[in-house]
Computed example of a mutant assay.
Amino acid sequence: MRLLLWGLALYHGANGLLMVAAPLGWFRAVPGVAETGAANAHFIADVGWGFLAAATALALAARCAPGRGPLLVAALVFLGGHAAMHVLDFFHHVFSAAVLRDILLVLLPGLLPLLPLLKGQDDA
């Protein structure tokens, strides 16, 4: 589980760092984002800080095997909420490549921190 948590921390941390450091570059680079409306650099950077906070919690959870549950919950507040919003968006769109993209890039990485929490593996 530690390897999974480290991988998720790196994934979300890199995304957040890019959002904070180059919000308009992130907007242009991520497939499908431009289809959601006009870019707002301040808002993109704000969301990037959420990804960095979640990545920090995941990295700390990877380091601290016993008692990692609260750290996972903290990460899931943002990541799970973000994933849930994308699921709700699915109901407004026909099944398309965008849905598959969101499943792979948003839902899976956003909900994978549930695995160690649900398995009760505070010590692994």
Rank of each mutant, 00 (worst) to 15 (best):
A84R: 05
L88K: 09
R28W: 11
A54H: 02
F91H: 14
F90R: 02
G80H: 02
P113W: 12
H82T: 12
D123A: 09
W49D: 01
G67T: 03
V99E: 10
R101V: 06
K119V: 03
F43C: 04
L112Y: 10
P113Y: 09
F43L: 15
D46V: 14
A14M: 13
D122I: 01
L117M: 05
P66V: 07
A61F: 05
E35H: 13
L79W: 01
M85W: 11
W6Y: 14
A55P: 06
A38I: 09
F78C: 00
Q121G: 13
L88G: 15
K119N: 12
L111I: 08
T36L: 14
P70N: 01
A124Y: 06
L118E: 04
V33C: 03
A75T: 01
F78D: 05
R101Y: 12
H86K: 04
L72K: 04
S96D: 10
L118G: 10
P23T: 08
V87Y: 07
Y11P: 01
V77H: 04
W49H: 12
I44K: 10
A41Y: 09
L76T: 07
G110F: 00
A38R: 13
L18K: 06
G16K: 08
L117Q: 04
V99L: 14
Q121A: 14
L24W: 10
V77W: 07
D102Q: 09
A62R: 09
L107P: 07
A98I: 02
F95G: 09
G69H: 06
N40E: 02
D123M: 04
A61Y: 06
G25Y: 14
G32E: 13
L5R: 14
L52M: 11
A38G: 07
G37M: 04
D89T: 11
L8T: 09
P23H: 12
G32V: 11
H92L: 06
M19Q: 15
L58H: 12
V73S: 00
L52Q: 00
W26L: 03
G16M: 02
P116S: 12
D102P: 00
R63S: 01
L114C: 11
P113V: 08
D122N: 15
W6H: 11
A61L: 08
L17T: 01
A124E: 14
R2G: 15
H92Q: 08
F51S: 07
G50C: 14
L88T: 05
D102H: 08
A61T: 12
A97E: 09
P66W: 04
A98K: 11
G50D: 02
A124Q: 12
I44A: 04
L114K: 13
A97R: 08
G37Y: 12
F91Q: 07
W49M: 15
N40W: 00
L112D: 09
A84C: 05
Q121V: 06
